[in-house]
Write a protein that binds this DNA or RNA. Structure first.
Lengths: 250, 250
DNA sequence: TGAAAGCGTCCCATTCAACGGAAGCGGTGC
DNA sequence: GCACCGCTTCCGTTGAATGGGACGCTTTCA
């Protein structure tokens, strides 16, 4: 083979950089250069060069010996200007209140594609602080947060979403999800039991903007035997309204 | 002028992408394309193309009309695999304890260059939740966190740091900082009054690794009239040791 | 102990993707 | 209606990105 010069595979430098940054698995903090190259689908040489350039700017951290890890500067850049910053700031006090009063795990999510993306989470006081799931995802139909978010979206987006389920076996799955969304919409909150964990119950309410679209969801995860549903939901809804008001003000 | 083809200015694509991502100011969530281009020092056309590519991957979010903001996917990528994740997880429970017991603002910082980079912060209960300063920086010699970090580093790094101050007017400034560091080292904690805010007092202790190097600092900001220094410092030191132990275990 | 394998690093000829000036387009204000 | 401003598209030019090959180091295995 002769040297094929610029990206034979037809992807741009940007594509490669994104693949490189995305190649880090969730639970691993450092990766060997060769493994990183393979995960990113890049020739070793190319990966090496890009890593060096990115490391020069601090987006990656390349230890001698080819050990690569995400860089501090990248974290700084992102967390200084994060798109969810305003939302999280607005929500934090309310989340703390919920956590204090109900003594439950609280989470805040936004819709991204067909997933709920968790942007903040407070764990139940006393248990080990659990921020691991921040930046985690769950499919819309398997999380109360996802249902609360999707139930309050444009009809267009909802039907696009429901079309996803049409492929495997006709309309049955679609109808089931449609029913779930409808219930969620009319009740004003979503509940789902035993999905994350068989012994827990997820409950989430939407944070609505002026046009009654969900911009976020506020949820709790409680033990199955929790009996205060009647108290939980109004508390969440009140907090969600508070968050919405703060968002409009700022 | 003729079209000068690839980057006349001699910087790589990576450089440009970094400049683009860094161009967002701290307090602004969205930027006009033309302004972004100017801030990044890029021709409008180039900025436009790069933004479009980055937006395609979700690293940026380009609204029609040229409004650009940081993308959700970037936030997700970084926060899933952040280099400070383990540290923050280890520290969170202890920070919560400090916050509860002392009822003060607590912060966690690491050393990056000649700055303390704040990676986590809990605000005083009752006051508005203040996560704004997460990912904020302060120079080593103007923050108790910075002093606590620098005082427990390699001699080599310290002297490189102190050399910074030699330029303006000889050794006077250097000596002052050296003294500060020395005091901090021997006392086992750093204190600095009225720097962030004239009415507050910053106190920080190092989180030390097995070789007695500071990997992080744990600090509080208290009102000047706070009198419980004798109680504060031991509490912080105990927490710092707890964090260190957790870091070693994992 | 010596060979082989694995890995990071450097080199460098090839060439295509990145570049950016110019022109087009749509909106806004005078 | 014209001038201005900013985003977007187009397209010829060309040098920066590419990646196979080679090297040196360390580790593994016979």
């Amino acid at each position: 083979m002769r040297a094929v010069a610029n990206s034979a595979s037809g992807d741009s430098v940007v594509d490669r950089i994104v693949r490189l940054l995305s190649a880090f698995p969730e639970d691993v903090s450092a990766l060997q250069l060769s493994e990183l190259a393979e995960r990113a689908g890049l020739p070793l040489t190319t990966a090496h060069r890009l890593v060096r350039q990115l490391a020069h700017h601090g987006l990656l951290d390349a230890a001698p010996g080819g050990l690569v890890r995400p860089g501090l500067r990248l974290w700084e850049l992102v967390n200084r200007t994060a798109p969810t910053l305003a939302l999280r700031q607005a929500a934090m006090p309310f989340m703390e209140d919920i956590q204090q009063v109900l003594n439950q795990n609280v989470n805040l999510a936004v819709l991204d594609g067909w997933d709920a993306l968790f942007v903040e989470r407070l764990s139940r006081r006393g248990s080990v602080a659990n921020r691991a799931r921040v930046a985690g995802r769950m499919p819309v139909h398997t999380s109360s947060a996802g249902l609360a978010l999707m139930a309050h979206q444009d009809r267009l987006l909802q039907s696009q979403y429901l079309d996803q389920f049409a492929d495997p076996d006709g309309k049955v799955a679609t109808d089931a999800v449609r029913l779930l969304l409808s219930e969620t919409f009319h009740q004003g909150f979503a509940q789902l039991k035993g999905v994350v964990d068989p012994d827990t119950w997820g409950i989430a309410v939407p944070v609505l903007d002026a046009r009654q679209r969900a911009v976020a969801s506020l949820g709790v995860v409680v033990p199955l035997r929790e009996m205060r549903l009647q108290a939980l939901v109004p508390a969440l809804q009140t907090a969600a309204r508070g968050i919405a008001r703060r968002l409009n003000d700022s």
